[in-house]
Design a binder for these strands. Structure first.
Lengths: 133, 133
DNA sequence: GTGTTTGCAAAGAATTTGCAACGAA
DNA sequence: TTCGTTGCAAATTCTTTGCAAACAC
């Protein structure tokens, strides 16, 4: 969080009260929340915060590389506080996204293409969902 | 296409005129079109076809495993006629999605999770976009 | 002070749904 | 005949935008 705030200032962004709350809500989060989930969490502390602000803040964080946008969920954007390279385990039933370490691997990128990141997703059914139904 | 139609009937689905046109539009397509692009293509042949029908048909194809939904594009669903395992090269500037063979690899799935597919995406900038701007 | 940020309401884009008519099997 | 399919319009859901007031720096 502290490092977030430092990075934040260093990027010339303003550290406002709403943003402070949003940063706190995101800190240490491993659940890959959607914008709506971030909003809900943030409103527990400060009910006045608007959807607009949450969207704008998330977008600013993504734009500056302090947060990443996950596309594994087809129905909404999900956000990931871990920006270092890692893989995702995605339960297509309950939507849970779990991080796993990206093993040392040799995925050769294609020629004539500048690769900025490699995303590996394991899709399937998690243990909890597999038992049910 | 013929095999599509056979699989289609075998699944108890009806082969209607609109669907025939949609199947023809998708056949051999490697461009990972969006629903809207499929609609546009289909309407060149039969202008009367509705958005509803295209959406319903794409969804039915996906549900029965004859087509797959690609999540690499954050703003809309894209569809892939190649259902065999392969990787994607995604240009985040122009949105182009290219298939590449999935090299033999040993990505170990996590324990306690039933993996149905592994999706590898190389995100970055394609040659054409890299020149510009 | 200056330029960002906020928040509301409205707009936009993608997708889904209700429902009556239609048509393949 | 029967039940899946079509198509229209309207509704939903997620996200973005216009704009005036508020605020960090």
């Amino acid at each position: 969080l502290k490092s977030f705030q430092i990075a934040w200032r260093a990027l010339g962004l303003k550290l406002t009260a709403p943003r402070r709350v949003i940063l706190e809500a995101l800190e240490g989060d491993r659940s890959h929340p959607s914008a709506e989930q971030v909003l809900a969490r943030v409103r527990k502390r400060r009910p006045g915060i608007s959807f607009t602000t949450v969207y704008a803040t998330l977008e600013a964080l993504v734009r500056h590389g302090l947060l990443s946008r996950v596309t594994a969920d087809p129905s909404r954007a999900r956000f990931d506080t871990v920006t270092a390279a890692h893989d995702h385990v995605v339960c297509d039933r309950c939507g849970t996204i779990r991080d796993v370490a990206a093993p040392r691997r040799s995925l050769r990128g294609p020629r004539g293409f500048r690769v900025s990141r490699v995303q590996v997703e394991f899709h399937g059914t998690c243990g909890a969902c597999d038992g049910r139904d």
